[in-house]
C-alpha cells in the first residue's frame, strides 16, 4: 500500500556527531504518507538521536532532512513552522506542570497556530475523549498517572495536526500495566493511517504496529523489512543476536 503514496520525509546521508563520537553515520530513509516505521536497536545506536535530528532538536553535521520538500534546519527562520508538522512525544512525561490538562493541549493551537479558542478547546476535548481522559480536562499533570500523562502528551501533539508523529520510547518510563493503554492509542492512530516514526523496545507492539521495521546499529541501518520478515527471518546476524536478547529476557521474567 505504501508503494504509491507520496514521500513526506526524506533523510539523505544524515550525519550526527557529538565531538568525535559519531552517533549517526550516513543514514538514508524515506517515509511515505501513512507509513508506520518502527526503529529498533541496542541502546546508544542513535534511535532517539535520529528522532531528535528530524525535529531539529539536535544540529547535524552532514546530510539533510526534507519534510515535504522543505529542509529541516534548526537555524532557519521557519523552523518553528516546520516543527508544527512534526508531533513529538518524549520518553519522560513532559507535560507543562503549570497548566491544566486542557490548557496543555490547547496552548500551542491557540498561541502558535492562532486558532480560535472555542474551536481549539472543542478539538482538544475530542482528542482527550479519544485517549479516554476527558474527565481529567481540568486536572493538573501531577494528578495523573504516568500512562495518563503520556496519553495527554499524545493528544497534545495531535492537536497541532502534524504530518508525522515522532514517538521516542514513549513507554520506556512507564509501569508495565500502563504500557498497554498508551500503545493502544498508537495502534488506533496507525489504523487511521497516521504517519509515524516510532522508537520502541516493545517488540510485540513493534510487530503489531509497523509497516516497516528499521534495525539501527552504530548509526547505520543494518537491516530493514516488513515486521513478519524482520522478526521471524532476520537476514543479518546482528539483528538475530539483538532479537535473541529479548527472548532471553522474556524467559527470565517468566521464571522470576
Amino acid at each position: 500500500m505504501s508503494g504509491e503514496r507520496e514521500i513526506v520525509l526524506r533523510i539523505e546521508d544524515l550525519k550526527k556527531a557529538y565531538g568525535d563520537n559519531v552517533v549517526i553515520d550516513g543514514l538514508n530513509l524515506e517515509v511515505r504518507a501513512g507509513e508506520v516505521i518502527v526503529v529498533i536497536g541496542p541502546s546508544g545506536c542513535g534511535k532517539s538521536t535520529l528522532l531528535r535530528c528530524i525535529n531539529a532538536l539536535e544540529d547535524i553535521q552532514g546530510g539533510r532532512i526534507l519534510l515535504e520538500g522543505q529542509e529541516v534546519d534548526g537555524k532557519s527562520k521557519n523552523i518553528a513552522q516546520i516543527r508544527q508538522k512534526l508531533g513529538m512525544v518524549f520518553q519522560s512525561y513532559d507535560l507543562f506542570p503549570h497548566k491544566t490538562i486542557i490548557d496543555n493541549v490547547t496552548l500551542s493551537p491557540i498561541k502558535v497556530q492562532k486558532r480560535p479558542k472555542d474551536e481549539a478547546v472543542a478539538e482538544a476535548e475530542a482528542l482527550l475523549d479519544r485517549v479516554g481522559l476527558l474527565d481529567k480536562r481540568d486536572d493538573y499533570p501531577r494528578q495523573l498517572s504516568g500512562g495518563q500523562k503520556q496519553r495527554v502528551a499524545i493528544a497534545r501533539a495531535l492537536a497541532m495536526k502534524p504530518e508525522i508523529m515522532l514517538l521516542d520510547e514513549i513507554t520506556a518510563a512507564l509501569d508495565p500495566e500502563m504500557v498497554h493503554e498508551v500503545l493502544d492509542v498508537i495502534l488506533d492512530l496507525a489504523r487511521e493511517g497516521k504517519t509515524m516514526i516510532i522508537v520502541t523496545h516493545e517488540m510485540s507492539f513493534a510487530r503489531a504496529v509497523a509497516d516497516r521495521v528499521i534495525f539501527l546499529e552504530g548509526g547505520h541501518i543494518v537491516e530493514e523489512g516488513i515486521p513478519e520478515q524482520f522478526f521471524d527471518h532476520p537476514k543479518t546476524e546482528r539483528a538475530r543476536e539483538f532479537l535473541h536478547t529479548f527472548e532471553f529476557a522474556a524467559v527470565r521474567s517468566h521464571t522470576e
Binding site: N55, F90, H98
Partner: peptide, 24 residues
C-alpha cells in the same frame, strides 16, 4: 525537556520563554 517539548510543538524561543519557562 520542557523547552524541547515546547519547541517541538512549534513555539518560537520567545513563546517558550513566555508561556513555559518563565511561569515555571
Amino acid at each position: 525537556i520542557q523547552t524541547e517539548s515546547a519547541l517541538s510543538l512549534g513555539m518560537t524561543p520567545a513563546q517558550v520563554m513566555r508561556y513555559i519557562t518563565l511561569p515555571q
